[in-house]
């Protein structure tokens, strides 16, 4: 993705304080959401940056309790403009996993591949609700607003997504155990 033209943003010092706090709290979440939309690491980085630039323009309109929902919604709109309309789970080849000291890098990589495998078995129209609720921590009203679906649909999609996730996880786990025994 080509680097966008530089642009200046005359934010005040207090705006930057809040922007910095929001950035540090949520930029990884935004980046993850974009990667799950199929953006490459570089594109996700650019889109994350774009998301926060858009947020900087609207800081006064963002309610403190809705910062994450606003950012994810903005990020998904940015992804949409880039032509990514569907969730696509990708393995990360260049991801800095920032491993904790008690985990081995190869184990963590394997876990992430398992994660991708399990989630790829959840229907595409369900996995988004699952991810937004289970991983990104949005509430059902936030998800309903974000995806423009009724609250009841959020609940039903989540229920079905969970069933599929748990079923897939169980199958993968069983398969792993069999491999370990053979």
């Amino acid at each position: 993705m080509a680097a966008p033209a530089p642009r200046t943003r005359p934010t005040t010092a207090v705006d930057r304080v809040r922007l910095e706090r929001i950035f540090n709290a949520h930029h990884a979440t935004v980046w993850r959401a974009l990667r799950r939309r199929g953006l490459s690491a570089d594109a996700a980085e650019d889109a994350t940056q774009e998301t926060f630039l858009l947020a900087a323009d609207r800081l006064d309109d963002i309610r403190p309790e809705s910062e994450k929902a606003f950012l994810i919604a903005t990020a998904l709109r940015v992804a949409h403009t880039l032509g990514r309309k569907t969730v696509r789970w990708e393995l990360d080849e260049d991801m800095d996993q920032r491993l904790s000291t008690n985990r081995d890098a190869s184990d963590a990589r394997a876990d992430m591949q398992l994660c991708d495998l399990v989630l790829s078995k959840v229907d595409a129209d369900l996995v988004e609700v699952f991810v937004l609720y289970e991983l990104e921590g949005l509430t059902s009203p936030e998800i309903a607003e974000l995806l423009q679906i009724p609250l009841g649909s959020v609940a039903s999609r989540l229920r079905r997504a969970r069933e599929q996730f748990r079923s897939a996880a169980a199958r993968v786990e069983t398969s792993l155990k069999k491999e370990g025994e053979s």
Binding site: H27, W31, R32, A41, D96, C115, A169
Partner: peptide
């Protein structure tokens, strides 16, 4: 599995 999903982050340099 869920923990692995949450560990996905941009690189420190990014």
């Amino acid at each position: 599995v869920l923990g692995a999903a949450l560990r996905k982050q941009p690189s420190s340099a990014a």
